[in-house]
Amino acid sequence: MKQNQKVFQDDPRYRVANREALIGVALVIFNFILWYAFAYGLGSKPVAEYNYIWGLPAWFFYSCILVTALILVLVILAVVFLFKEVPFDEEGEQ
C-alpha cells in the first residue's frame, strides 16, 4: 500500500446517511401508494358519479391535495425527530 493512500474506516456518517436515505425512500413510496390508491380508486368511476370537494373531484382532492399535505407534515416530522445533524469535516483533521 502506498503511503499517501488512506485506509477506509467505517465512518458513522455513512450509517446516518443510509438511514436517512431509507427514510426518504420510504416516504416517497408511501406517497406514491396513497396517491395511486386515491387517484385510481376513487377516479375509476364514470364522471357522472364523481363527488366534489371544493369544486374538485374527490379523487383529485384526496390524491393531490390531502396526500400532499399529509406527506409534507410527515417529512417535517421526519426531519425534526429522525434526522441528525452531521458534521461534514473529516474527523481527525486539524
Score class of each variant (00 low, 15 high):
Q94M: 12
F81L: 13
E49R: 06
L70Q: 04
G43V: 00
V28W: 13
L22N: 12
V79D: 09
S63D: 00
N18R: 14
K84M: 04
I29W: 01
I33F: 01
K6S: 09
I65P: 04
N31A: 02
R15D: 12
F61A: 15
Y40S: 01
N4A: 11
A78L: 02
G43H: 04
L70D: 03
L72I: 11
Q9C: 08
I76M: 12
F38T: 02
R13D: 08
Y40W: 12
P12G: 04
D89L: 12
R13A: 05
V75R: 03
V47A: 12
G55C: 04
I23Y: 01
I71V: 13
C64I: 08
I76T: 11
V16N: 11
A58M: 05
A21I: 05
E85L: 13
L34K: 03
F60D: 03
L66T: 14
L66R: 08
I23F: 07
F88H: 15
K2H: 15
Q5T: 11
Q9Y: 00
V79F: 15
V28A: 12
S63W: 00
Y52D: 00
E85S: 10
V67A: 02
N18V: 15
V16S: 12
V86N: 01
Y62P: 02
K45P: 10
L77P: 00
I53F: 11
E85C: 06
V25E: 06
R15E: 11
I76N: 11
E90A: 15
W35Y: 02
L74V: 01
I23T: 07
L27F: 04
W54C: 10
M1P: 05
F30R: 01
N31I: 01
P12E: 00
M1E: 03
L77M: 04
A58Q: 10
K45D: 13
R19Q: 08
V7E: 15
A78T: 05
F32C: 03
Y52K: 02
E91F: 12
D11M: 05
F32N: 03
V7M: 14
A78Y: 03
